[in-house]
């Protein structure tokens, strides 16, 4: 029983670490501006799949890890991820019943909100100029969402994470 607990937890952690790796993997700038917000995608999946286990606390910690990896002021992404995790954890039953394309649309909105929050922080605290390409990942995240969802569901069922 305890062993199973440990494997289950490590499955969740490994997928999160993989998403963080994808988030900082070096690539040319032209491709990088379209990089989906991988950590947030993985967080959204786990929140709607296991809302009792993974919710706002996890999201805030993952956001903090993103802050450290990206070198932004500590707390920007943590706050953004926590805020976005709230509707996902609150309405998980409704989201589960959405079709994949509807979910993708919702993911686009959530990623956009998260990015908008980080942008507002950067704008008011660090005088960031407005860059429209900063919001393009909302689109690419939505495009990648069905695959993320299916792959993670397969992993969850394979390891019987509950």
């Amino acid at each position: 029983m305890i062993m199973r607990r440990i494997t289950q937890r490590s499955v969740i952690l490994i997928t999160i670490v993989l998403s963080l790796i994808l988030a900082v993997m070096p690539m040319s700038l032209a491709v990088a501006v379209w990089r989906p917000e991988w950590p947030l995608l993985v967080m959204i999946y786990w929140i709607i799949a296991l809302p009792y286990r993974v919710n706002i606390g996890y999201a805030a910690v993952v956001g903090l890890a993103v802050d450290i990896l990206l070198g932004s002021t500590l707390g920007f992404h943590a706050a953004a991820y926590a805020i976005v995790a709230y509707p996902a954890a609150n309405y998980y039953q409704r989201i589960r019943n959405f079709s994949l394309s509807q979910q993708a649309l919702l993911v686009a909105v959530l990623v956009f909100i998260a990015r908008a929050i980080v942008y507002l922080f950067e704008h008011y605290l660090n005088n960031a100029p407005l860059m429209f390409y900063y919001f393009w990942p909302a689109l690419s995240s939505a495009i990648f969402w069905p695959w993320v969802f299916l792959v993670l569901r397969k992993i969850r069922r394979r390891f019987q994470v509950r």
């Binding site: 988030a23 900082v24 070096p26 990206l70 070198g71 980080v118 950067e122 900063y134």
Partner: peptide
């Protein structure tokens, strides 16, 4: 590693 974030 390179930061893809345009703000940093």
């Amino acid at each position: 590693a390179v930061d893809s974030d345009p703000f940093s």
